[in-house]
Amino acid sequence: MTDGQGMHVSDERGLTPADLQSMRFSRASVLRPGYVETEVDRVLSRMAEELARLVAEKAELRDQVRALQAQMEGMEGVVAQQPPSEQALRILSTAQQTADNYVAEAEEFSRQVTGEARAEYEEQIRLARENAGAIIQAAQEAAAKITANATGAPEGGQRSVEELEEQVAYLKAFGQACRVQLRSYLEALITDVETEWGRADPAGLPPGAPRPLAAPAPRGNTASSTTFEANTAAETPPSGEAGNGTVVSAASGAERRP
């Protein structure tokens, strides 16, 4: 074989693994075993050059990769720290304010309606009380007059006490009925408000089916049907000839709640 085989390597192309595999050196001579030294030396030096070039190229590439990586990381940092744009901030702020106003309006509506309803309720109660108070006072005065004027006649006195007590019971029932009626009226109003609230503030509603209103606790009341009779009866002026101290205390007891 000839040394020419080994030296096919072109300078431009550099040394490839295939070149090395196909490379054949010439036998030196019968006297000297081995390959021709010059050929081997030349190939070795070409290989050294090639390796150096590869090492340099690799380093260069590694630097490039590092630079790119750093750039990427830097970019990520920049992206994360990038503040939201002024425009986005403005849009979100406006949206938030719209939501706030929406809820505020619903709250204000609810506040007004409940407030007005309560004021009305309390005024009615007050009037009813005053009314009852005036009647009771008249009864007390009448009773006092009777006590002062009359002596004896225990039968009549007894009847008058009973009558007054009866009227007191009517008054109580009337007051109670009044409260109960107003209460259910107000309940209805408030239920409306609550429903309105639910509509105006959908986020405030539970997901899924609308929830039934909490049932109000049952309250002891049986007097509502007697309202108007009680009222009429109570307006009848008390009559009777005689009385005693118990009348007064029973009558003033009507102002007390049981």
Partner: peptide
């Protein structure tokens, strides 16, 4: 008002 009128 939710606690008084709606919670059950």
């Amino acid at each position: 008002s939710a606690l008084v009128r709606r919670v059950g």
